[in-house]
Every structure is written in structure tokens, then in C-alpha cells.
């Protein structure tokens, strides 16, 4: 149509300070938005509260009697760190579903067409989901206390155990964020997007001692990150060697973040 060589206008972006300020306020606005959406959605409430509580009760009273463990206080003390980690991991389901849905409906496209910090959508999501996860974990802890669980190692290690559980959940959330953004389809994410979480959490030390599994499975169960993190949480809650597990856990969580944050960011940008 036109062959006129019109030179584009070059525009300097806002200074770094302003960009950082915007990134913070964008993230916070999206966090609030995501939390508000969560409170409006009854399904999420069931998923975040009712289901984990049911898990605690089922394992405590149905399977618990059949599982032999060597920890002070018996199975309920063995169970709680495991179930807290497992619930934190499964809380990431909400992350994947929400991102896939927003992708599918064009919400992410709209955000990407707006003068918003690129990091804000993912960060806001993670912050909101961490709050949600914290609520879940505190509810589970309260139920755990009601059914006999006790921190045997003092308050500070107990708090650290909760924080480690939360950090583990956030790391899993970044994997789920990537899965949700990559699959982009709410239904597919809902039906198989998080299937990988089942073997990872169940073939671990979460619910039963690894020594009760067949030998070939033990090799996997003993060395996979979920077991490493849960063992460390157990040591924090009940006492025992701490240092080596702490390093290993930290290394695994950092590794997951290092791999999946860039992957998630990339699929967000390419959306």
C-alpha cells in the first residue's frame, strides 16, 4: 500500500525506580485480585480446606492403625509433616488451573497487552497462592493438634517446619504454573496436568516409612526430593539430625525454582 519509509518514533522507557514501583503495585493488585477470586469460589474452598482435613482424618484413623513407625508419639506425629508437605504440593493444583483458565479465556493476553510489569502476573499468582496455602497448612496443623499431633522439638523448629512446608509448596507451585501455562487448557490441566504429583508424594516418606516398600521402589523413594524435604520437616518437628537434610532440601528447592521459574516466565511471554 505505502512505500514511504517512515521512521519509527523511539521512546525511552520509564526510569528503573518507577518501573520497580509499578512492578510492586501491579503484583500487589494482582495478589489481591487472585485472593478475592479464591474466596468467591466454593470449589476452591473445598479443595483448600475440606480435602486436606479429610486426608488427615483418613490417614490418622483408617490407615494409621496398620502402619508401624518408630517415632516418638506414634503414627500421628509421623503423619503430620508428611501430610503438610503433601497438602502444600497439592495446593499448587489451584495455581495450574487458574493460570490455564486465564490463558484460555484471553485474560493473560489482555494483561500482556497492558503497560504492566511482565513479572507481576506470575508473582501475584504465587503470592496469593502462598497465602492460600498458609491458610490450608494452619488448618491442617490445628486439626492435627486436635487428633494428637505434638511438636516434640520446641517452638522454633516447629515454625521452621511450617516454613519449609510452605517453601516446598511454593516450589511445586512454580512447576504447576509452568504446567498450567504450557497446557493452556483448563480441562486438560484438571484431568491430567498434575498427575505427576501422585507418584512423587505417595512414593515418598510422606505416609509410610520407606523401609516398608519393595527394594526397587525404595531406591527411588529414598532419594527423591519429596522424601528429603519431608524427612527434614520430621526432624524439625520431632528432633534428630538437621544439617545435612537442610542443605539437601534447600538445594532441591533452589534447583526447582531455578529451572521452573524461567520456564514459566517463558511460556507466559510466549502465550
Amino acid at each position: 500500500m505505502t512505500a514511504v519509509a517512515l521512521a519509527a518514533v523511539d521512546v525511552a522507557g520509564p526510569p528503573l525506580r518507577e518501573r520497580l514501583g509499578r512492578a510492586l503495585s501491579d503484583t500487589w493488585n494482582l495478589t489481591r485480585r487472585d485472593m478475592k477470586i479464591w474466596t468467591r469460589n466454593p470449589a476452591f474452598l473445598v479443595f483448600a480446606i475440606v480435602q486436606p482435613v479429610m486426608f488427615v482424618l483418613l490417614f490418622r484413623y483408617v490407615f494409621g492403625g496398620a502402619i508401624q513407625v518408630q517415632v516418638p508419639g506414634g503414627y500421628v506425629n509421623f503423619l503430620m509433616p508428611g501430610i503438610i508437605a503433601q497438602s502444600a504440593a497439592f495446593a499448587s493444583f489451584g495455581t495450574a488451573i487458574a493460570l490455564a483458565r486465564q490463558m484460555q479465556r484471553g485474560v493473560i493476553d489482555r494483561f500482556r497487552s497492558m503497560p504492566m510489569a511482565r513479572s507481576a502476573v506470575l508473582l501475584g499468582r504465587l503470592v496469593a497462592d502462598s497465602f492460600r496455602m498458609l491458610v490450608t497448612l494452619l488448618v491442617i496443623l490445628a486439626v492435627g493438634y486436635a487428633v494428637g499431633f505434638r511438636f516434640e522439638n520446641g517452638v522454633l523448629p516447629g515454625v521452621l517446619m511450617m516454613l519449609l512446608g510452605l517453601a516446598f509448596g511454593v516450589a511445586v507451585c512454580t512447576v504447576s504454573a509452568y504446567v498450567g501455562l504450557a497446557i493452556r487448557d483448563e480441562e486438560s490441566v484438571g484431568s491430567f496436568g498434575l498427575i505427576w504429583l501422585f507418584p512423587l508424594t505417595f512414593v515418598s516418606a510422606a505416609f509410610v516409612p520407606v523401609s516398608s516398600m519393595p527394594g526397587w521402589l525404595q531406591a527411588f523413594a529414598n532419594n527423591q526430593p519429596v522424601t528429603i524435604v519431608i524427612d527434614e520437616m520430621r526432624h524439625l518437628a520431632l528432633g534428630g539430625a538437621l544439617v545435612e537434610g537442610a542443605w539437601q532440601s534447600a538445594a532441591w528447592l533452589a534447583g526447582v525454582l531455578l529451572v521452573f521459574v524461567p520456564l514459566a516466565v517463558r511460556s507466559y511471554r510466549r502465550a
Binding site: A8, V11, K36, I37, R105, V107, D109, R110, S113, P115
Partner: peptide, 26 residues
């Protein structure tokens, strides 16, 4: 330029995509 000055373009445009990009819970 939509590639080189993407941030500046985003300051100027509005987009309503092919599906209604609203948040139904809100």
C-alpha cells in the same frame, strides 16, 4: 514499533480479544 517499543505501544492501546477476557467470579 510493536517489537522494539512494545512498552510504549502498550501505553497507547486497548484490546478486547476474541473471547471475553473477564473474571467471572468478580
Amino acid at each position: 514499533d510493536v517489537v522494539r517499543s512494545a512498552a510504549a505501544v502498550r501505553e497507547l492501546i486497548g484490546l478486547a480479544g476474541q473471547s471475553a477476557a473477564i473474571q467471572e467470579e468478580l
